[in-house]
Design a protein around this nucleic acid. Structure first.
Lengths: 194, 194
DNA sequence: CAAAACTCTTAATCTAGTTTAAGAGTATTT
DNA sequence: AAATACTCTTAAACTAGATTAAGAGTTTTG
């Protein structure tokens, strides 16, 4: 049930049996079905979620009704609207399930309690924030320096699991292009690959 | 000399006189002149730098020789190539000074020592990583969802100090557009502003 | 199991942003 | 104080990517 989470944490810090117990007691588990919301724009994001099974996406909807994806989250990833979670302000993002999904939820109070009881976890969350920041930096630099085909190739190399698992519409929305143009790119790639 | 840094930290955690001393003893100060490098692509990033005075930028150079700016850093900001600093791998970024600059440097060992001696600092760095991550998320969403003029307006609203202080070439490079097009945008803005 | 609702593709037309070029105005350097 | 190097602007020609539309294939839903 929570093996995946514990092993994810133990990649970065070591835990005693008591610490594991302490941490797990703060979590609640939740299942949602495909297409259901985990968070809707305007709500306060009450939880960070660790994905045990399934897949979610976080995205915004622009003034013309178009969706723009910030993040996908599959097994082993954390997801939530950090800004809303941190400041308890209304979220600007939506998060919903692209597949039936099981997750473990941690509240803000739970997290704070954890940090006070056991500062080791402060390190764990610092490290995953650092890693996430590095990934975001890379994405920004690619967005501003590379044409769409390169960005797609890098995405496919970096997240091969996503390519098989996600509809192309969603990937296009993550890359910042239209699905029609992604289709064109994929066509071009077939005739120039060697 | 280090008042700015201490007050920046005390916005997030409270420090005893001893802790301040302990922290400051780990820092070394450094001045560089305009146009000098703080870090060059290929080097390992040995320090994170807190800017006391002046202005730096971090950027990559693409295959066609064009620069793309990831970050500007003025007084009160930290700068460095996090990935290189964390993993002690060769940097892909360049960091240089846009003005004569004074900064305080912290090594990786210094930081780790600090975390072990005084876990409170682990919280401080977690918090600034979170804030930085939020800023990066916002930037990604704006990049993939808004036309250049909107992005420029938001940039100007968010960082008014930068608008006066930085050459437009640099701002264009941060926004992911050419200087020529930024010039056009600014012209358009004059005749439609109401 | 039929109908509705997505997903992917192709193609024509359109546009936001790039490229190239050239000139005028400011800083920097010698 | 002249020479060199940046910075900003304007404008014409160009292109990566958007838009619109339509059809075929696949899932989902009632």
């Amino acid at each position: 049930m929570s093996d995946l989470l514990i092993s994810a944490i133990e990649k970065h810090i070591s835990l005693t049996a008591k610490e594991k117990e302490q941490f797990l007691s703060l979590l609640q588990s939740k299942k949602i079905r495909k297409k259901q919301y985990f968070l809707q724009e305007g709500e306060v994001c009450k939880y960070t979620a660790f994905v045990n099974k399934g897949c979610l996406r976080s995205y915004i909807v622009d003034n013309n009704g178009f969706e723009h994806i910030l993040q996908f989250a599959i097994e082993g990833w954390w997801v939530g609207d950090i800004m809303s979670f941190k400041n308890e302000t209304p979220s600007t993002q939506n998060i919903d399930a692209l597949e039936d999904t099981e997750m473990l939820l941690l509240t803000r109070e739970g997290q704070q309690q954890l940090f006070d009881q056991c500062p080791k976890f402060e390190r764990y969350f610092r490290i995953i924030m650092e890693n996430s920041l590095i990934a975001h930096q890379t994405r920004i630099l690619e967005n501003i320096s590379m044409p769409a085909m390169e960005r797609y190739k890098n995405f496919a190399k970096r997240y091969p699991a996503f390519i098989q698992r996600l509809p192309q519409t969603q990937i296009a929305s993550y890359l910042g292009i239209t699905p029609e143009f992604l289709s064109k790119i994929r066509h071009q790639m077939m005739y120039q690959k060697p």
